[in-house]
């Protein structure tokens, strides 16, 4: 009867946690679309959307409603199954990442200790990479199934870009993993929270820079938004999409942005750590709540920087993108890795 000896309450806990995280990320993504327009406007001396509700706060709902009400068009030359699968896959891959992000420490409710992390798997960061690579399938399948040359071209660009930048991203990550000696995101965050230990960005500034640039490329954000390329590829891989399927693509992009911000915050900026504060002196529930807030603040700052870059830097040309990825990012990441390894060995030998 060992099969029935499942901790049912744990299952319910996790389900509730998953629901909260998924809906919270979707809600944040909803408002990220609004923030994008608002940030763009403010950086360009415009007021931005301000008509729907106070300060235009209902704008995302109006946008969503518009997307849902639009006619759903599937081109008759498209592969229908793949055409529908594409956006779903993109969205799923984007949301799956949130499973291993440690949102905060533990909370104590009714004599139970609940980890604010869906799954603390010991290969967390590897899982993230696996899922992020799945996101390329969303783009690739969408572009392929549309049966349109612009979409296909954009999808190819997206796939090759993602592959090129994933390499440098992984290499820059190895340096961090050498420091922490663990692939679990929770362990990495806990190490950064330990007293006397700075955030990883202090030890790995170059690694962070490479990771950040690669994250921009992975999220298809400007200056690496070649798969979208509004003005040369007519919106690229989601050109043939309409209604909520288009919404899913756009939305998954914003969810990706949130998730990569969360991962960068966890890997390099101490995750849910509050700077200059020893969390162990606080009540555990309070510390957990403040931790969630701290992580959210870090995510918001990262998202702002993403947008800030978008409205500052123009898009790369395709050959420039490839040059940067293969000839600059990968060697730099390798050098960074070598230096980190050498320093670690030197410190151990002392």
């Amino acid at each position: 009867m060992t099969l029935l000896a499942i901790d049912w309450i744990l299952l319910i806990e996790k389900l509730i946690l998953i629901a909260i995280i998924v809906f919270a990320s979707l809600g944040i993504a909803l408002y990220t679309t609004f923030a994008e327009r608002k940030v763009a406007a403010i950086l360009q001396d415009r007021p931005g959307p301000n008509r729907a509700g106070p300060f235009g706060l209902f704008q995302p709902f109006a946008d969503g409603l518009k997307l849902i009400m639009k006619e759903e068009i599937i081109p008759n030359t498209a592969n229908k199954f793949l055409f529908v699968l594409g956006p779903g896959l993109a969205m799923t891959a984007a949301l799956m990442t949130c499973a291993v992000i440690p949102w905060s420490s533990q909370v104590h409710i009714f004599d139970r200790t609940i980890d604010l992390q869906v799954a603390d798997i010991n290969i967390g960061i590897l899982y993230v990479f696996g899922v992020v690579s799945m996101g390329v399938y969303g783009i690739m399948i969408g572009g392929w199934a549309s049966n349109n040359k612009f979409s296909l071209m954009a999808a190819l660009r997206g796939a090759s870009q993602a592959i090129s930048y994933e390499l440098a991203m992984g290499l820059s990550l190895i340096a961090v993993l050498m420091l922490s000696g663990s692939l679990s995101l929770k362990t990495i965050v806990d190490q950064q929270m330990a007293p006397g230990h700075l955030w990883n960005v202090a030890y790995q500034p170059l690694g962070f820079l490479i990771f950040f640039i690669c994250a921009l490329a992975e999220c298809n954000r400007t200056p690496f938004d070649l798969p979208e390329a509004e003005n040369e590829l007519n919106f690229g891989y989601h050109q043939e999409y309409s209604s909520m399927k288009l919404g899913f693509y756009l939305f998954s992009e914003y969810v990706n942005m949130i998730m990569s911000s969360a991962i960068m915050a966890s890997l390099f900026f101490g995750g849910f750590d509050i700077p200059f504060l020893d969390e162990s002196t606080l009540a555990p529930n309070l510390a957990a709540g403040l931790g969630v807030l701290a992580l959210l603040v870090k995510i918001v700052i990262f998202i702002f920087v993403f947008m800030w870059i978008r409205w500052t830097v123009p898009r790369f040309r395709y050959d420039q993108l490839m040059n940067l990825g293969w000839k600059k990012m990968i060697p730099l990441a390798l050098v960074n890795m070598l230096i980190t390894g050498a320093v670690i060995l030197w410190l151990q030998g002392k």
């Binding site: 403010i42 950086l43 001396d45 415009r46 007021p47 800030w308 870059i309 409205w311 500052t312």
Partner: peptide, 16 residues
Amino acid sequence: KGMAITFSHMFKKQPT
């Protein structure tokens, strides 16, 4: 430098 320029535009008066 470019990002500093765009950031400074956040505090400019809007002509709208």
